[in-house]
Design a protein around this nucleic acid. Structure first.
Lengths: 201, 201
DNA sequence: AGGTATTTCGCAACGTTGTTACGTCACGCC
DNA sequence: GGCGTGACGTAACAACGTTGCGAAATACCT
C-alpha cells in the first residue's frame, strides 16, 4: 500500500558511486547532499530516504572505501616465509593511500568533518586489514615473533604504516622521493625489531 | 590618518584563546567565525581584520597548537644515553595527543575541514618536534644508529608515534588499556630494530 | 579652528550548507 | 471508483563564511 519506492537499490548504488567520485576527485568539501543528488539526477530527498541523511551516506561511503582497500591488500601475493610479506604489505599500503588520499582520509584520518565512524564502521575498517592480520598470525605461528600476541603486533604494524602514510599525505615528508627513503628505512627497521630474538622471559 | 585600530594584539590573543578553547572543548565544528567573535564580545569583522578570514585564524591556531606540543616535548628530561630517551619521548607524545585530541587533529590529522596547512605551517609543526630530532641526532653521533641519516630516522620514528596516536584517537585500539599494550609493544620493537647492528655495508 | 580625506568598524545582505515541513502524486484495498 | 497510505519533489529554515555599505573616528591641510 502506498506509493511504491523509486529510490531503491539502484539509486543507492548510483548515489554511492557519485559520492565516492566527488570525494576522490574534489575532496571532502565537494560531497554535499545537493551536489550528490544533482550528479545522479534525483532530489536531495533520495539521500534522506535511502541513507537517512548525510551521516548515513558517509557511513556507507566509509564501508565502500574500506572494501576498496581490502581488495588492494588481498592482491599482495603470499610467500612461503610470511616474514617476507611484511614489507611488501607495507609498501602496498602506501601505494593504496597515495592512490586514493581522500578515501584514505575518510577511513583513517578524520578528514571528513562531522563524521565520526561508529564502532561497527571501525570494525568494518579493521576487517579490511585481515590480509595483514593473517600474515602476522602466520609469523606468530612460525615462532618468529616475540611473546606478545599477534593482535598487538598487528596493531603496532598498522600504526607504523598508517603513521607513515598519514604524514606523507599531509606533506611532512616532502616530495615522494624523500618519503620513499623514510618508508625504506622505517619498514625494515620495524620488521628487524620484530623478528630478532628478544631477551624477555 | 584614518580611524585607529581597536582590533589589535589584545583582541588577537583573545580570539585565538577563544578559538583554541572551542576547538579543544567542542571539536572542529564549534569553531565558527560568528561563535569565536561572540565569545570575545566583538563582531565577525574583527576576525577578518586580524586574520584575514577563517583560514588565517586556523593558521594562527595551528601554530599555537604546535607551540603547545613543543613545550610538552621539551619537558622530557635528557639522559646520559640518548637511546634511553626514545621510549619516554614516544610515551610523552602519546600523552600529549590524548590530552588534546582536537588540537592534535588540527596539527596532524586533517581533522579541520577546509584547512590545509601551508608549507610554512608544516615547517613550524616540524620544528615543534625539535626535541625529538635532537635526541635522534645524539643517537646518530653516538654511532648506535644504522647508516641512514638522522633526518630519515627521525621521520620514521615520528611516523610510528603519529600512527599509534592517530589510530588510538580514532578508536581503532579499543580502550586505553588495550592501546597501552600496543604502545608498549611497538615502541621497544622499533627502538630495538633501530639500535641493533645491521648487516649492510 | 573647521573641513576633508582616510582608515576601520558594525550591520546587513548574499549564496551555500544540512535538514525538515508540506502539498502532491501514485498505488492497493474496500 | 473513491479513499487511505506511503513516498516523492519543493520550498522553507537556521547556520555558515564572506563581502559591500554607511557610520564613526582620527590626522592633515587650509
Amino acid at each position: 500500500m502506498g506509493r511504491p519506492k523509486e529510490h531503491g537499490e539502484d539509486t543507492r548504488e548510483a548515489l554511492l558511486e557519485a559520492a565516492e567520485r566527488l570525494l576522490a576527485d574534489e575532496g571532502p568539501g565537494a560531497v554535499t547532499v545537493r551536489r550528490v543528488a544533482d550528479e545522479v539526477g534525483t532530489s536531495t530527498r533520495a539521500i534522506y530516504s535511502v541513507f537517512g541523511g548525510k551521516e548515513g551516506l558517509y557511513s556507507a561511503l566509509f564501508r565502500k572505501a574500506a572494501d576498496t582497500f581490502r581488495r588492494l591488500a588481498e592482491a599482495v601475493p603470499r610467500q612461503s616465509d610470511p616474514v617476507d610479506e611484511l614489507i611488501p604489505l607495507g609498501l602496498s599500503y602506501r601505494q593504496s593511500a597515495l592512490a586514493e588520499p581522500n578515501l584514505y582520509g575518510l577511513l583513517f584520518d578524520r578528514a571528513v568533518p562531522d563524521f565520526v565512524p561508529t564502532d561497527e564502521d571501525l570494525q568494518f575498517a579493521r576487517r579490511s586489514q585481515e590480509r595483514v592480520l593473517d600474515t602476522v598470525r602466520r609469523c606468530a605461528d612460525a615462532g618468529v615473533l616475540p611473546a606478545s600476541d599477534a593482535e598487538a603486533t598487528f596493531n603496532a604494524l598498522w600504526g607504523v604504516v598508517h603513521g607513515l602514510a598519514s604524514l606523507e599525505l599531509i606533506g611532512c615528508f616532502g616530495p615522494p622521493e624523500a618519503a620513499e627513503v623514510v618508508w625504506r628505512s622505517a619498514l625494515p627497521t620495524f620488521v628487524r625489531g620484530l623478528t630478532l630474538p628478544h631477551d624477555e622471559p
